[in-house]
Design a protein around this nucleic acid. Structure first.
Lengths: 131, 131
DNA sequence: TGAAACGTTCACATCAATGTGAAGGCAACT
DNA sequence: AGTTGCCTTCACATTGATGTGAACGTTTCA
C-alpha cells in the first residue's frame, strides 16, 4: 500500500510516516516513480511506534530496540548479531520500561481508588457508566 | 526545605522545579525574601511528576489529575468537588494510562522473550548478570 | 568585610515531535 | 484535455520540555 492508505489505516499523518522513515523506523520500498510502498506488517509497526512514542520513548531508543521487538516466531537475527553491549542496552531499556509501567500502574490505581471512594457502585472497568 | 535541597534530593534541576510551579504542579510557600519553601511531601510529588512526564503525559494532563492522585487515606476533596466532567476526565485518563501500560508491557515482554531465546540461562529479573 | 554558595527573575536557545504550505510530478476518471 | 486527488521534496513554524546565562539580592562563614 502507499502512504495515504497507511495513514488512513493508522490515523498517523503522512508527514509523520515520512518523519519516522527519516528516523530510520520505517523502511518502505519505492516504486519506479518514487512512491513509498508499505507491506501489510507496516500497519502494526506504525501502531507500535506510536504507542512507544506516546509512552515517552524517543525515536532514538525506538530505533535501537525495534529490531528486537518482533514476535519470537519470526526471530531473524542470529544470536551472533547480539553484542554484549546490545544485550545490556536491551536489559537497560526493559528496566526503564518497567519503571514507567510501575509509575503508570500506581497512578492508574490511585485514580480508580479515588473514583471508587466518591462514586461507589461504578466498576473501574471499561463501562463508561454514562447511564 | 528550599529549592536547592529539593533539587538534590530528587535529581531534578531547579530550573525544572520552577517550571513545574509555573505549570501549576507545585505550590511552594515563600519566605519573606521570596525564597521558595517546600514541605517534605514535595519530594514524592516531584518524583511522581517526573515519572508521569517520563511516561508521556503532558504537564496539562498532570495538572488536572494530580489533585486526585493522593493516597485515599488523605482524601481531602469532598465528593461534591467532583463534577461529572471531572469524573469522565479521570476515567478517560485512566484508560489512556492503561493503554500505555499495555503497550509498554507488550514490548517489555518482547524484549525479555528475545533475550531468553538468545541468552538462555539469564533470568529476566533485576540481576544484571555482569558476571 | 569579603568570598562562596544559594536564591530570585528574565530572556533567549535548543531539541524532539509535529504542523503547514509551497511547488511540482503522477494517476485516474470524465 | 482537464480536473481531482495522491504523491514527491523542501522549508519554515510551532509546541512542550529543557538548557543556559545574565543581572542581581541573600545567607553563611572565615
Amino acid at each position: 500500500m502507499r502512504i495515504g492508505e497507511l495513514s488512513r489505516r493508522t490515523g498517523v499523518p503522512t508527514r509523520m510516516l515520512r518523519y519516522y522513515e527519516e528516523q530510520d523506523l520505517l523502511h518502505p520500498e519505492r516504486t519506479g516513480n518514487g512512491y513509498r510502498v508499505y507491506g501489510e506488517p507496516a500497519v502494526y509497526r506504525v501502531q507500535q511506534i506510536r504507542g512507544l512514542l506516546d509512552s515517552g520513548l524517543t525515536t532514538e531508543i525506538i530505533r535501537r530496540i525495534l529490531p528486537f521487538l518482533n514476535k519470537p516466531d519470526e526471530i531473524h537475527l542470529h544470536p551472533e548479531c547480539l553484542t554484549p553491549e546490545t544485550a545490556a542496552l536491551l536489559r537497560g531499556e526493559a528496566e526503564r520500561i518497567q519503571q514507567r509501567i510501575d509509575c503508570l500502574a500506581r497512578n492508574r490505581d490511585a485514580i480508580h481508588a479515588y473514583l471508587a471512594v466518591v462514586q461507589p457502585g461504578a466498576p473501574p472497568g471499561p463501562p463508561t457508566g454514562q447511564t
